[in-house]
Design a protein around this nucleic acid. Sequence first.
DNA 1: AGCGTTAGTATGCAATTGGATACTGGAAAG
DNA 2: CTTTCCAGTATCCAATTGCATACTAACGCT
Lengths: 117, 117
Amino acid sequence: MNYTNEILEECGLTSAQKILSGKWSMRIILFLLEKPMRFNEIQRLFPDITHATLTKQLRLLEDYGIVVRNVHSQIPPKVEYSLSDIGKKLKPILNSVMAWGDEYKEYQKDSTTFKHS
Amino acid sequence: MNYTNEILEECGLTSAQKILSGKWSMRIILFLLEKPMRFNEIQRLFPDITHATLTKQLRLLEDYGIVVRNVHSQIPPKVEYSLSDIGKKLKPILNSVMAWGDEYKEYQKDSTTFKHS
DNA sequence: AGCGTTAGTATGCAATTGGATACTGGAAAG
DNA sequence: CTTTCCAGTATCCAATTGCATACTAACGCT
């Protein structure tokens, strides 16, 4: 064991954890990996997210440098969201997280264990 | 684009997101990947986590089926935490998350961009 | 004139998450 | 006889996260 808590802070795990742990972060990034999208286009993908919440999440990802916001000065406004270079590099991670999640769900289905009451 | 929000729910991304997004989840799993550990042993690794919080986090991971709790009936008590099979399969994910995070930190260091005030 | 479209902001609230603190109990060490 | 170690539980509080709702503004369509 070579890690200490300080080293964990220095290494990227903690930064990555903060960025990826938002409720919508991974889902948004997953879609943006396919193509840049406009605000309402993203919102249509997630019926459960409100306008204001999506704005916040996108601003957060923008502040982290994962998402790039491209404003076209038009009326009606057009704002395109895409991934930065470092954001695009999340692709293999998201793919393996999805794959793991699928396996996990299978695993859960098979098991007869229930949560302790 | 083949995903809809419903498909996202069906696919494993959402489950995985819930499990991995706890503040301490990834860090705990990272250490348990190396070897099973006792409660206090884990706590010593994280000076910032309190007793009660660690208990909660471990119970959560146990409920999710990621962590296995092995109680040895002794005085003083000895409880060993280890990873389940599906938990162990998170190893490549954690490794790539760490690698990405390191790259991200480098990226941040180099860039002269600051957050918009 | 009024509605829909675009991409927001502002404000307040609810839920969830995580932390602080105090308590348990039994054995061993000093 | 008191303290330490072990692994907790209980309760309450603080911070963060996410949601609901109402508002803006400029243009096109009917």
